[in-house]
Nucleic acid binder design. Structure first.
Lengths: 250, 250
DNA sequence: AAGACAAAAAATGAATGCAAAATTGGTTGC
DNA sequence: GCAACCAATTTTGCATTCATTTTTTGTCTT
C-alpha cells in the first residue's frame, strides 16, 4: 500500500479526556507522554517490538517532534530503549533486570518504612490497619484481584506516610517498570506463599505500630525479597514453557 | 534570511571526548545530553536562571530540536524544570528538596550496603579498607579536598559492590542532583563532625567485614542522616547570610 | 505622573522538509 | 542453488519554518 498520508484525516486532537482527567499537562508533548507511558506500562505494545514513529504518530494524531520528545523521556525513565538510528523498542526485562528492580523497590520501601516511623500519625496507621483487615478478607475469600489491589494500596500508603515526594516519584517510576511482571507473579502465587505474605504483612503492621523504624526496614526488605523470589520462580516457569525471547537482542 | 546560526563554524562533532571517553552515545542529542548535564551539574548555570534555547543552541552549535530533546530528558531526571511556554530553568532546591534527596540517598546507600554484604568479595573489602586508611591520612592532614574525593570513592565502591546496575544508575542520578550542595556542605564541616564521620566510617567498615547486612544498613542510613543534618545546618547558615532566593518562584 | 491597555518583539511549541543511515528486495556471480 | 553485492524504499536524525503564547515597550487615559 502506498502510505501517502495526504491528509491526516483523523483529528485525534481531543481523545485523551477519558484517561485520567487532565493532569497539569496542557502541552501536547506532555499529554502524549502520559498516554504513551500508560500505553507501554499497560503492556499494549508487545515485548521488545519495534514501533515505527510514523505509526505512533498516526495513532496519536500528532507529528513526529513531540512524539520523539516523549520517547526520549520514556527512555530516560527506563521504560523503552532507543537504539541509535534504529528506533525505539519497549525495554526487554531479563531475569537480572527484574531481580535488580525488585531489590531497588525493596530498598525504597524499606526506606519508606523507616522514614514513616518518624512521622506517621495514628490516623494513618489506623487507615493502614483497615486496609490490612480488608486485605485479610480478600485473602480468606481467595479473591486474588481484590487482594492485589489492597496490597498495592498498603504499600503505597507506607510510601506516602514517609512524606517524601522525591521518594514517592522514584517509587512510582520503578513500580511502573515492573508492573506487568508484578501482577502476573502475584497471580501465580502459590497458596503457601500467600499465607506467608499475610504473616509478613502482620509483622509489618506490628513494627509500624511500635514505630520501630529499623525493624520495619528489615521486615519490609525481607517481604519484598520474598516477593522477588516468587516472581523469579514464576518467571522461570513461564520462560521455561515458552522461551520466545531467549536471545536478548533482536 | 535571518538565519539564527549564520556560520556554525564550530564543528562540535568531537568535543565530549574529554569527559569520560565516548560512552555509547554517537548521536548528536546524546552528546548534547551529556554535555548539558555536566554543564548543569557542575553549576555553570546560575541557580534558577532562565536560559533561552537560542543561547544554548549557539553555545552548542546545534539547532533547537536535539537541544529540546535533551532538555526534556534533563527535566525527567530532575535536574531542570520545564515551565509550560516559559522555558527551562535549573531546578531550585529548597531545604525540603535537599532533605528529601539526602534521605533517598541514605536509603539507596543503605540498600547498597545490605546487598553488598551478600556478594562482596574479600578483595573488594580489602580495597575499601585501603581507601579508608587513605582517607584517614587525609583526615589527619586536614586535607579536606582529598578526604572528600576518597569519601566519594568509598561510597561509590559500596554501591558498586552491590552489583546492581539499576541501583547504581539511580544512585548516580540522585547524587548528581545534590552534588554542589554535598560538596559545599562537606567543606563547611566542623572539626567535631569530621571526627564523628570518621568513627561512623569505621563502624561501616566493621559491619561490612562481618557481612552484617542489616546492621550495615542501619549504620549507613545513620551516617547519611548525619550528613544530611550537617548539610541542612550549613545551608541554613548560608541562606541566613545571603537569602537571595527567599521566595520559591521567580 | 502613574497605571492600564495594546502592539510589537521574542521565545516556546509543533510541523514539515531534507539528508543520512538502515533495512529490504532484487540481481548477479560462483 | 546459495551467497554476496547493489539499488530502492523506508526510517531515523536534525534543521528549518510556522503558529501561538509570553513578555516587553510605548502610548494613552485618568
Amino acid at each position: 500500500m502506498k502510505s501517502a498520508i495526504p491528509e491526516t484525516g483523523v483529528p485525534i486532537t481531543q481523545p485523551a479526556t477519558g484517561q485520567g482527567g487532565e493532569r497539569q499537562e496542557a502541552s501536547l508533548h506532555g499529554e502524549i507522554l502520559l498516554r504513551l507511558r500508560d500505553h507501554v506500562v499497560e503492556g499494549n505494545i508487545p515485548d521488545g517490538a519495534r514501533v515505527p514513529e510514523r505509526q505512533l504518530c498516526e495513532m496519536l494524531g500528532i507529528s513526529r517532534t513531540p512524539l520523539r520528545e516523549a520517547l526520549k523521556v520514556l527512555a530516560a525513565e527506563g521504560l523503552i530503549e532507543l537504539l541509535p538510528n534504529r528506533g525505539a523498542r519497549v525495554r526487554q526485562l531479563g531475569q537480572r533486570d527484574i531481580e535488580e528492580l525488585f531489590d531497588v523497590m525493596a530498598g525504597l520501601e524499606s526506606l519508606a518504612g523507616r522514614l514513616a516511623c518518624e512521622v506517621i500519625t495514628d490516623e494513618e496507621i489506623t487507615a493502614i490497619e483497615r486496609l490490612h483487615y480488608d486485605m485479610y478478607g480478600h485473602y480468606l475469600h481467595r479473591d486474588m484481584h481484590g487482594y492485589f489491589q489492597i496490597n498495592q494500596r498498603i504499600h503505597e500508603s507506607i510510601v506516602a506516610a514517609a512524606r517524601n515526594e522525591t521518594l514517592r516519584t522514584a517509587y512510582a517510576n520503578f513500580a511502573g517498570r515492573i508492573r506487568r511482571i508484578r501482577y502476573s507473579a502475584n497471580f501465580a502465587r502459590k497458596r503457601q506463599r500467600w499465607a506467608e505474605a499475610m504473616r509478613e504483612h502482620e509483622a509489618i503492621l506490628d513494627a509500624l505500630r511500635r514505630r520501630a523504624g529499623s525493624e520495619l526496614s528489615d521486615v519490609l526488605f525481607q517481604h519484598l525479597r520474598n516477593k522477588r523470589t516468587a516472581a523469579i520462580e514464576h518467571l522461570a516457569e513461564v520462560q521455561d514453557a515458552a522461551p520466545e525471547t531467549a536471545s536478548q537482542d533482536g
